[in-house]
């Protein structure tokens, strides 16, 4: 698989690791020393070279191993990928968006050749070559959504828009922060966000929905979300809670730096052309506390954010129990100095 991609696991021996380059480009999500829910959306325009924003869909050193992990999750539980019948067209829209973006942004890894509706797709890292007819499901080994998201990092949901609302009616969800597509499928925007504390009272969801209903073709947006995960486990699903939930009880001062990970989701939203649906890629990035504190600004700030985050939020994100330990560990790296605004590391 070449030197560009890590040989690593997200289960069992957890050999996942971030290279120095991956640490440097990690999407640290806190622009200031405190955190509260907000709509925090900005245009998803290309960012600095080398950053996770450089391209529409970021492909990094974890790509091949993440795709292998996804295939294992799907083999155990095929319901992680579902698409209601009316969402097939949106699946094709997404396939087109991803193939065109990757072929444009990473031409050495991906190629897309079109002759009318006869398409030819080459994915070198995964050693896939596929000739198929666009919009003809019988020419792919599976539906268009499943086909392309088996080759793309991050979870995906597709929202149908009708009755001034959005409905989550298709998705590929194997790297989720404790929510279930099988449980949520068919729900409206308010229904699937119902469990989130505090944000409803702040009016965040009313504003976000209003914004998204007007999301325009050609003008995608992005936001961050974050949580905490013990061990670099991508599949923190409710379906598998008995397997990973108890690991929260095994953290100690000795192992927390290695095992506790900040999990950041780069969420983007794209209006899809033919279906008028909205695609919602949720790309998870993991970084261990010990790697994160190598960036002094991030170490100071994460300590302050975790220490001060409101209790309902720490509960919802599932780390209330370990907060004191996290704060104790991180406090070693916070000398009290001020931090600069924005999430980029301080200039060296």
């Amino acid at each position: 698989m070449g030197l560009e991609f890590n040989e690593e696991t997200f289960r069992g021996d957890f050999s996942f690791k971030n290279s120095p380059k991956a640490i440097k480009r990690f999407p640290f999500p806190f622009p200031e020393d405190s955190y509260m829910y907000s709509v925090n959306m900005e245009p998803h325009v290309p960012g600095p070279k080398g950053s996770v924003f450089e391209h529409t869909f970021d492909v990094d050193e974890h790509y091949v191993s993440e795709m292998r992990d996804r295939a294992m999750v799907l083999a155990d539980d095929p319901l992680r990928c579902q698409s209601l019948p009316h969402m097939t067209l949106a699946g094709w829209d997404l396939l087109e968006l991803i193939m065109e973006s990757k072929a444009r942004d990473y031409p050495h890894w991906f190629e897309l050749h079109k002759n009318g509706n006869k398409w030819h797709w080459i994915n070198r890292p995964l050693e896939i070559e596929q000739k198929f007819t666009f919009l003809d499901e019988t020419t792919l080994p599976c539906g268009p959504l499943e086909y392309i998201t088996r080759q793309t990092q991050g979870d995906f949901t597709l929202q149908d828009q009708r009755d001034n609302n959005l409905f989550i009616e298709a998705g590929m969800v194997t790297t989720q922060a404790d929510w279930s597509l099988d449980f949520d499928i068919g729900m409206s925007f308010q229904e699937w966000h119902a469990p989130v504390p505090m944000a409803h009272e702040l009016g965040v969801f009313d504003r976000a929905l209003k914004f998204l209903l007007k999301l325009q073709l050609g003008a995608p947006v992005r936001r961050f979300n974050w949580t905490m995960t013990v061990d670099p486990l991508l599949d923190t699903s409710p379906e598998n809670y008995p397997k990973w939930g108890p690991t929260k009880t095994t953290l100690t001062m000795d192992n927390i730096g290695r095992r506790q990970h900040l999990r950041v989701e780069l969420q983007t939203l794209h209006r899809l052309p033919r279906s008028n649906a909205i695609a919602f890629p949720i790309r998870a990035y993991l970084i261990s506390f010990q790697d994160l504190v190598t960036v002094p600004k991030w170490a100071r700030r994460l300590h302050r954010v975790i220490r001060d985050v409101p209790e309902p939020l720490a509960t919802y994100k599932g780390f209330l129990r370990n907060r004191p330990l996290m704060v104790e560990y991180l406090s070693q790296f916070d000398d009290g100095k001020p931090t600069s605004p924005g999430w980029w590391p301080e200039p060296e």
């Binding site: 009316h86 969402m87 325009q216 003008a219 052309p273 279906s275 008028n276």
Partner: peptide, 11 residues
Amino acid sequence: HPVNLFGLDLR
């Protein structure tokens, strides 16, 4: 760019 306020309900 096109904007759709009169979409088909594909269900």
